[in-house]
């Protein structure tokens, strides 16, 4: 086990390093740089000297290899530097948005668990009936409906129903409030994006619950439980469901990692100031340092979650032996 953990940690280093190199060169392939956009973006004539000066200040005239070294050594020593666009420390820029995106991601995961496990169970227990087909269609629809459109529909629905019931249209607040200060106001804002993304992410987990449960239901110990006359409800809840949740947890873990970065479109619809929106802005501004930091945050979360999921899997299921 320890040997496996050690090997997995070692394998993470080239992945993280590779991601860093990839984003570094990807950003520099984009034509133009932050100085040109900031100075010439307004359409006015700018001195080449001014642009050169700006590049010198930001260290953009250094050789590529030096810039790359600065970025990678900064990443591994947790020194992310300052944003090239705003000039503020990146940890400050991220801190504001990280909390919001993390909260939406956690809430969306909760929503998807609440949808996936009951529906997946029903679908497996009533396999190949119309109920099963309906649940499967419902979950496939979750992947098919674009989350931004679901977002638009939710907002539209809220406007119309509040207009009809209270006479005045109500919109979720735009300003972010901490859940510790005003839990209701926070919930009123973030529950909608959480539902829009949670429904989408429940799809894979629902199918996973269904197929894992179907597999477990064919095990010998289920037959034994039936043979000794246990009620079907007990068999499913106590014997089958518990043993089939492992792959579901894995899927949820992996999806959680991507939720953090994948919120780009949803944040746009609900006008949330999260990591996804910051990412789009920083790419458009060609803010190398901020984009690099953001990508590394998302990739690091993804890689670590994958690692933890693998470890948890080996830990929880004694049948899995990693050599």
């Amino acid at each position: 086990m320890w040997q496996y953990i050690f090997k997995r940690i070692l394998l993470m280093i080239p992945t993280l390093l590779g991601a860093a190199i990839l984003v570094f060169f990807l950003m520099r392939l984009i034509p133009g740089d932050v100085c040109e956009i900031r100075l010439a973006g307004t359409g006015l004539y700018v001195d080449q000297e001014q642009i050169d000066l700006c590049r010198q200040q930001l260290g953009l005239n250094e050789p590529m290899i030096v810039q790359l070294w600065d970025f990678i050594s900064g990443y591994f020593t947790f020194n992310l530097g300052t944003s090239m666009w705003t000039g503020k420390p990146i940890t400050y820029e991220l801190g504001l948005r990280f909390q919001l995106s993390l909260q939406v991601a956690v809430m969306a995961t909760v929503v998807s668990i609440l949808i996936a496990i009951p529906l997946g169970t029903i679908s497996a227990v009533r396999q190949n009936t119309w109920l099963d087909y309906f649940v499967r269609a419902f979950s496939i629809a979750g992947i098919a409906i674009p989350s931004f459109w679901l977002g638009i529909l939710i907002i539209l629905g809220l406007l119309i129903t509040t207009q009809a019931w209270f006479g005045t249209p109500w919109m979720p607040p735009i300003e972010y409030v901490s859940p510790f200060k005003d839990p209701l106001g926070n919930l009123a804002q973030l529950i909608w994006p959480a539902v829009a993304t949670g429904y989408r992410y429940s799809a894979v987990a629902t199918r996973m619950t269904r197929s894992a449960l179907l597999e477990v239901m064919r095990e010998d110990y289920i037959r034994t439980a039936r043979a000794k006359g246990l009620v079907e409800k007990l068999i499913i809840n106590r014997h089958a469901l518990k043993n089939s949740l492992l792959p579901v947890i894995t899927v949820l873990g992996i999806e959680f990692a991507f939720l953090m970065g994948g919120l780009v479109v949803t944040e746009q619809v609900f006008n949330l100031n999260g990591l996804g929106k910051l990412f789009v802005e920083s790419v458009l501004n060609k803010d190398y340092s901020l984009t690099q930091a953001l990508v590394m945050v998302v990739v690091t979360v993804a890689v670590f979650t994958n690692f933890l999921v693998d470890i948890a899997y080996a830990w929880l299921d004694p049948r899995i032996r990693y050599a």
Binding site: T15, G18, A19, L22, V23, I30, G261, V299
Partner: peptide, 15 residues
């Protein structure tokens, strides 16, 4: 392939 997969789809597409 690991590196490419650790990038969320939409982020790679955006870049």
């Amino acid at each position: 392939m690991d590196i490419l997969m650790s990038f969320p789809l939409i982020i790679l597409a955006l870049a």
